[in-house]
Amino acid sequence: MSKERIKIAPEMFDIMPEEYQDLVERATYGNEHRGWKDIGTSKELIEEHSLCAGCPESMAFRYILASLPAPEDTVMVGSTGCTSLVFPHVGVHNIHSLFGNQNAIASGLKRALSVRFPGRVKDVVVLAGDGATVDIGLDMTLQAWFRQEKFTTICFDNELYANTGGQESGLMQKGFVAKMAPVGKTFEKVKLPEIARESGCHYVVNCTVSKPNLVEKVIKNAIHVAREIGPTYLQLYTPCILEIGKNSMEGLQEMRDSEKPTERFAYKEYVSDQAKELLTELAAKEKERKAALKKQLAGQA
């Protein structure tokens, strides 16, 4: 699990575009303690993207890719939407599925990887919008959870179909009027986190991406639980600033406003007993590692 598997042929190094040279020399592949704090000091697995200026989804993408525990052994499955404009630029294996089909693809992929690479940990992470997760792909989403497939599902919830101009989605809040949904939503936002819990997900979180350290924590937890126990689900609020009438610099504030205790993206977490046990164990190990490191540094001083 390291950069040893990602080497440019020496005779071709000088002709490779700079971003590929950087990926090999300065990315954090193989570093099991990688995290959002590496952003700015190492090569990110996403740098250029074609999302709108100030798009919270691009922030979420950066934090998530910085937080994957083992990007060199991770395959992400995307679906139709703004995310599919970003995947061509990321330094992680990924598959674009048919709209809504992402959890079915991920199920087969995870099983195939277990057979093909026995004894090696391979993470599968689904990353799709709310339309793909809750409307068009709800069947595939739920069935994967019922079957206890061992992968993480992340939903970028922007509460409408943003990529196609603002149609109503199941995760849109009640009463919201969108550009192509002029009557306003007449029923409540689908409670997918609760449905996920009842469908067998072992780790479920509903939050915004305003705090990178929180995103890192939930991503790592979700992936570790999915590896060992079963399905996990993260619903992350990534508002579409264009479709809700905000300016480029207002995305962060929008998320902060929406995560207040009484708001729909107040931090909500469900952890099964099995997952609690695992996460406690992992936290203890991490604490031990940090204490040892501290001791070592003190010894050096």
């Binding site: 990602i6 080497k7 042929a9 020496p10 005779e11 071709m12 490779m16």
Partner: peptide
């Protein structure tokens, strides 16, 4: 136009081809 099969040193054979292409 060399492609990924020779740009990356997947194995000795690939690296050998890269040298020959250069």
């Amino acid at each position: 136009f060399p492609g990924p099969l020779v740009l990356w040193a997947w194995n000795e054979k690939a690296a050998g081809k890269a040298t020959a292409i250069r």
